[in-house]
Simulated assay, not measured.
Amino acid sequence: MEYYVEKVEDLYSLDLERLVQESEKEGYRFVARLVNEIKDESNLFNRPGEGLFCVKNDAGSIIAIGGINQSPFDTTSGVGRLRRFYVAEDARREGVGTLLLQSIVEHAKKHFTEITVRTDSSKADAFYRACGFTFDDSASETTHFLILQ
């Protein structure tokens, strides 16, 4: 199966129901939160440097989602925050998450000097470390960061 990354231009056309249901079964609410933020327009990934990206399979179905926002936890403009990052269970361990993260990082390099993220999942911790992030949980809102060159 082939996968491709798209920057989401029309947030209101996203069909994320499958990802919402699957993520909630796993105990994660952040995909549902993404849908709610789009509906109430509290996070449209439209400030400078921000963007929402999805991975689709060759059938055109969204199998992963993730974005970058200006960090609400840092007063400098050079820090981006990885947000709402989720990969469908049947697409994991196939390079989909790495493909999505690489696209977000490439986009972020044009706008930010650092990316931060918070996770409480050991699998996500291993993923972020394998992708070059450094573990640092000294701040309550961040567990990993990546300095962009």
Rank of each mutant, 00 (worst) to 15 (best):
E9L: 11
G49W: 14
V31R: 01
D10P: 05
D15H: 01
S23I: 05
N43Q: 09
S13V: 07
F45S: 09
E24I: 07
F30L: 03
Y28Q: 01
E22C: 03
D10N: 15
R47M: 10
E17S: 08
K25V: 09
R18G: 10
G49N: 14
R47Q: 15
E24P: 01
D10F: 01
K25Q: 13
E24D: 13
L19A: 10
V20W: 08
V35S: 07
L34S: 01
R29G: 05
V31F: 05
E37K: 14
P48E: 11
L16M: 08
E22W: 10
Y28E: 07
F45V: 05
K39T: 11
K39G: 11
Q21M: 15
G27Q: 10
E37M: 12
G27T: 07
R29M: 06
E24C: 02
D40P: 08
D15Y: 05
N46F: 00
K25S: 11
K39Y: 13
E17C: 02
L14C: 03
L44C: 06
F45I: 07
L16R: 05
N46G: 12
R18A: 15
E9S: 14
Y12T: 12
E41A: 15
F30Q: 04
K39P: 04
S13H: 09
P48Y: 07
F30I: 04
L34D: 05
P48I: 00
L11M: 06
N36W: 09
D15W: 00
L11Y: 01
G49H: 14
Q21G: 13
Y28P: 00
E9K: 13
V20Y: 08
R47D: 14
G49V: 12
R29H: 08
D40C: 08
G49C: 08
L19P: 10
F30W: 08
E24L: 07
L16T: 11
N36R: 13
E26H: 10
L34P: 00
S23Q: 04
G49R: 08
A32H: 00
Q21T: 15
E17R: 03
E24W: 04
I38D: 05
R47I: 03
E41L: 11
E22Y: 06
L14S: 09
R47S: 14
S13Y: 10
R29W: 02
R29N: 03
S13W: 06
K25T: 14
S42F: 10
V35W: 07
E17Q: 07
P48T: 06
V20D: 07
N36K: 12
S23A: 15
D15I: 01
S23V: 04
N43H: 01
I38K: 02
Y28N: 00
S42N: 10
K25N: 12
F30M: 02
L14W: 08
K39L: 14
R18I: 15
E37W: 10
R33L: 14
S23C: 04
F45N: 05
Y12V: 06
E41P: 00
S42M: 09
Y12F: 15
V35K: 12
V31M: 06
P48C: 00
V31W: 02
D10L: 08
I38L: 05
V20I: 12
L14I: 09
F45P: 07
V31H: 02
D15C: 07
E26I: 00
E24N: 14
E37L: 10
D10R: 12
D40V: 07
N46V: 00
L16W: 11
D15G: 02
